[in-house]
C-alpha cells in the first residue's frame, strides 16, 4: 500500500493515452458518426420530399384528367352543335333547291304550255285557213287574208 513513483508513471501513461485518444481515436469516430447521422437525416428528408412530390403529381394528374374530360365534353358539345347546324343548313339548302326545282319545273311547264298554245293557235289558224280555203277555195287571196286570220287566231 505504498505510494511511490508508480503514481507519476501512471500520470504519464494517462496523459499519453488521453492525447492518443484525443488525436487519433475520438475525432475520426465521432465525425464518421455525425456524417452518418446527417446522411440518414438527408435521406429521410429526401424520402419525405419525394412522397410529397408524388402526392402533388397525383393531384396534378387528377386535375389534368378532369380538365381533359371537360375539354373533351366541350369538344363533343361543339361537334354536336356543328352537326345540328350542318343538318339544318342541309335541310335549308334542300328546301331551297326543291323550291328552285319546282319553280324551274313550273316555268318549264308554263313555257311548254305557251308553246303548245302557240302551236295550237298556229294549227288552229292553219286549220281555219285550210277550212276557209276549202270554203272559199281560190276566191281568197292567201296573202290578203292571212293577216286577218292571224288576228283571229290571236284572239283565241
Amino acid at each position: 500500500m505504498n505510494i511511490n513513483l508508480t503514481l507519476i508513471g501512471q500520470m504519464i501513461f494517462f496523459a499519453l493515452f488521453v492525447m492518443f485518444c484525443m488525436r487519433f481515436v475520438w475525432p475520426p469516430i465521432i465525425n464518421a458518426m455525425k456524417a452518418r447521422a446527417e446522411k440518414i437525416a438527408d435521406g429521410l428528408e429526401a424520402a419525405d420530399r419525394a412522397s410529397k412530390d408524388l402526392e402533388l403529381a397525383k393531384e396534378k394528374a387528377v386535375s389534368q384528367l378532369h380538365e381533359a374530360k371537360e375539354q373533351a365534353a366541350s369538344i363533343i358539345d361543339a361537334a354536336n352543335k356543328r352537326a345540328n347546324q350542318i343538318v339544318d343548313e342541309a335541310k335549308d339548302q334542300a328546301r331551297e333547291e326543291g323550291e328552285r326545282l319546282k319553280a324551274a319545273a313550273q316555268a318549264e311547264i308554263e313555257q311548254e304550255m305557251n308553246r303548245a298554245k302557240e302551236q295550237l293557235r298556229g294549227q288552229v289558224a292553219a286549220l281555219a285557213i285550210a277550212g276557209a280555203e276549202k270554203v272559199l277555195e281560190a276566191s281568197i287571196d292567201e296573202n290578203a287574208h292571212k293577216e286577218l286570220v292571224e288576228k283571229l287566231a290571236a284572239g283565241l
Binding site: F17, F24, V25, A32, A35
Partner: peptide, 15 residues
Amino acid sequence: FCWLFRRVAVKASSG
C-alpha cells in the same frame, strides 16, 4: 484500448 479504438477509427465511415 488504443489498438481497439484506433482500429474502429480507421474503419469508421459514414456508410
